[in-house]
Nucleic acid binder design. Sequence first.
RNA 1: CGAGUUGUUCAUACGGUCGCGGGCCGCCGAGAGGCGGCGUGAGGAAAGUCCGAGCAUCACAGGGCAAGGAUGCCUGCUAACGGCAGGAGGAGGCGACUUCAAGGAAAGUGAACAGAAAUACACCGCGGCAGUUUUGCCGUAAGGGUGGAAUGGCGAGGUAAGAGCUCACCGUCGCCCCGGUAACGGGGCGAGCCAAUUAAACCCCAUCCGAUGCAAGAUUGGGAUAAGGGCUGCGUUAAAUCGCGGGGCUGCCCGUCCGCUUUUAUCCGUUAAUAUCGCUUUAGCUUGCCGGCGACGGCAAGCAUAGAUAGAUGACCGUACACGACAGAACUCGGCUUACAGAUCAAUCUCGGGUC
RNA 2: GGCCUUGUGGUCAAGCGGUUAAGACGGAGCCCUCUCAAGGCUCAAUCCCGGGUUCGAUUCCCGGCAAGGUCA
Length: 104
Amino acid sequence: MKYLRLKKNTDIQKLFKRGKRAYSNALTAVYMPSDELKMAVIVSKKHGKAVKRNRIKRLVRRAFFLTCERAPFACSIALLPKVSEEYSLAAFERSLLSCFKRMK
RNA sequence: CGAGUUGUUCAUACGGUCGCGGGCCGCCGAGAGGCGGCGUGAGGAAAGUCCGAGCAUCACAGGGCAAGGAUGCCUGCUAACGGCAGGAGGAGGCGACUUCAAGGAAAGUGAACAGAAAUACACCGCGGCAGUUUUGCCGUAAGGGUGGAAUGGCGAGGUAAGAGCUCACCGUCGCCCCGGUAACGGGGCGAGCCAAUUAAACCCCAUCCGAUGCAAGAUUGGGAUAAGGGCUGCGUUAAAUCGCGGGGCUGCCCGUCCGCUUUUAUCCGUUAAUAUCGCUUUAGCUUGCCGGCGACGGCAAGCAUAGAUAGAUGACCGUACACGACAGAACUCGGCUUACAGAUCAAUCUCGGGUC
RNA sequence: GGCCUUGUGGUCAAGCGGUUAAGACGGAGCCCUCUCAAGGCUCAAUCCCGGGUUCGAUUCCCGGCAAGGUCA
């Protein structure tokens, strides 16, 4: 299933002001209903240096790509991974699914 | 065979499925774009942002002096450099070789505490004279003590005791000769030590440097009219016309340049930034030959090799083995520095042992 | 991405190359008090880390690390 990237700074600002949050053990999702499915990954410098941050973003994007058809409704969504020692695709997939369950 | 030294190259590989950025081609579409195909897509450090350039802007981007900053053995290389190469000197290693922020202390200033004293003023001591219970004056840097550093070191002579006071050797300084482009090296003669150390303390000398950085900046982002404000003030004039002043060129002098910016209202116009360009073809890379000890230069042939803009290289599976380190382009080059699992090849390289 | 700044007890901080590293707030212990407060005394620092210069470095030089600011 196709999804769009959430790019504009103003949209992200809006999302953080008005959006609701869904938590799981590997990441936090901030979401807000919209007409299309839009996604952004937010990784801060706390996660490590550039190589590490890129890897986290790729894993989260891939996990979202594999699971996004099970999203309950069209929305703008920002994903904030939590800081940890190890990151894996399977953990992000599980966390995303549990987030989708909690989104109402 | 073992132990080293210096340098070179590489930085998991291959296959399958799904997915991403850019390009080209074809088809569809009014267009935005969509679909399909082909090919392409991170590093030796892309990092730190420590130097040097290109490029761009700053109204012009000039000279002198001052201030500030940087560099500091010599000769080369280079677009340039604080880089590199070769050499000189100090230090280390048996050696191959490594390493060093390395101009000037005879222009001046400063250097805690301790110590008698820090470039010089005698505490103890040693000795002479006076006195003789204590001590006073003079000479003395050999010894003690203080200190990071104490009148160049050591031996001999010498002396009342001592002292470059004298002599040999070493060190230092000056002059001459020879070798070298030079730093410097070698030799000779002289000086009897005057001039300790410290300049990553101030400082002096030589050379170099305008500032800001692609978030620079350019293009479009409107045009016309009217009114007002700000910088740029005063006098004068029909007039920014002229004079003085003012502003910019880091401070001063000379010289030179200077009309710009903004607000409001009305009419016409509007996708207007998250746009487009800058943005990847170059001091480019590879190979061969020639010159040079080398850094590098010359010639010839061939090649085109990321260009994103919330920011593209990944995930999963399989196979192989050395079980994969440090790490992700953001305008571009030349260096430096720092991080790093390993593998690899080279040197008529070095040392030790064995055999012929 | 570019350009800067700062690292000193728990916190805020001063510091001419030679200090027992000044203070203030807070903390701990003791004294004082019938008890508490106030007051007094005492204690606690790898001067961010690693090299270098120097007789001697928190301070000077070089290289790292961390934190913060700023530019559309």
